[in-house]
Amino acid sequence: MPVYGPLSYSLASNILASKALTRWFTPFANWYANLAGYRKYGLKYDDLLIEERDDVQRAITRLTPRETYDRNFRFKRASQASVLHAPLPKEQWVKPEEDVRYLLPHVIEVVKEDTERQMWDTVAVGRK
């Protein structure tokens, strides 16, 4: 797995596995996500994934037409807000419950496929 990129090292799964850790980290995580400011510009976290990669590009093609449309709309709205040097009005901010990982499952799927192809390309066949 790459150090940088959509599937870089993450401790999230370890933290989510433990109830106590989840309880301690959730307020900190929420505080951090709000501080990052992307929600104020109407973006979701998965809009920030580095998309200049073949696997993420392929994952983007697998979104439903509706998801693709919404993603493009969010980008347009955010760049307009950026031009105006001001966040969006508060009612247009992305709410925490709307901030879902809509792209990540597709990226994971694509990476899995690439890994499998690599495996089959280099597989050594032995006699049973």
């Binding site: 496929e113 499998e116 192809r117 089959w120 597989v123 066949v125």
Partner: peptide, 12 residues
């Protein structure tokens, strides 16, 4: 198995 796996394994 995946589509690729089916093809590759059948080829083997």
């Amino acid at each position: 198995r995946s589509a690729l796996g089916t093809v590759r394994e059948s080829e083997l």
